[in-house]
Amino acid sequence: MTVVHDNLEKTQAKMSAKSVSVFYGDKKAIDEVSIDIPTEYVTAFIGPSGCGKSTFLRTLNRMNDTIPSARVEGEIDLDGQDIYRSGMDVVQLRARVGMVFQKPNPFPKSIYDNIAYGPKIHGLAEGKDELDAIVEKSLKRAGLWEEVKDRLQDSGTALSGGQQQRLCIARAIAVDPEVILMDEPCSALDPIATAKIEELIAELNGRYAIVIVTHSMQQAARVSQRTAFFHLGKMVEYGRTSDIFTNPHEQRTQDYITGRYG
């Protein structure tokens, strides 16, 4: 069913999904998806809207738990352990698998408090100095430090859209996650802000396993090394980004990439 390109290097998968199906009530939103997500690369999920790519992304840190009617079948492993097993702690999981949303959602607090929120609730910093250091480091990694270092006490909501999104990325980085999930992080941003986020993703690549959902094929081509194509709740094809875009094995992938539907 799913075509997985066979020329992928054998790497240690950070996360791996095995026959994952997701239901909303009786409706099957994701059908038997299996995929390995490596640490070394940026993985992009592409596909027409409503294909389930965002739903699948949310299963990776169990954010779909917040939707009462959602139900997941199958197995998703993080470092070899099923995150849906009964003993799994959701709080710890989400601290390890961070998420950045489609629309920037900074808390209505100061820039500093936005970043410090995660370390504070998880108790990752002892004392103000350490917290300051985490805030500075996270903002630097998110490429926002130079722009906001003089106004850390300003409200996070006062920043521009692109800055807000980088703030959200910095917020996710502050707890040192192992995986960062990004759900169409640039869809609400202008091209210049988008370019900055893409640069940032390239810089973070390698340090964290990154999964990005995008509806823009160009963006997938620019930022990712691995691409999975979703269609109608199924993963149709998965392989190197270059292969998917230049030499797709599946007709549906071909049609989507050449713009026959979308």
Binding site: Q92, A95, R96, I121, L124, D176, P177, E178
Partner: peptide
């Protein structure tokens, strides 16, 4: 991961987690 190694997988974190759940 740079200076801090997987800070959310330490035993200290898990001890704190218990308190947080309480």
């Amino acid at each position: 991961m740079s200076e801090r190694i997987a800070p959310t997988r330490t035993t200290a974190f898990e001890a704190r987690l218990k308190k947080r759940y309480a």
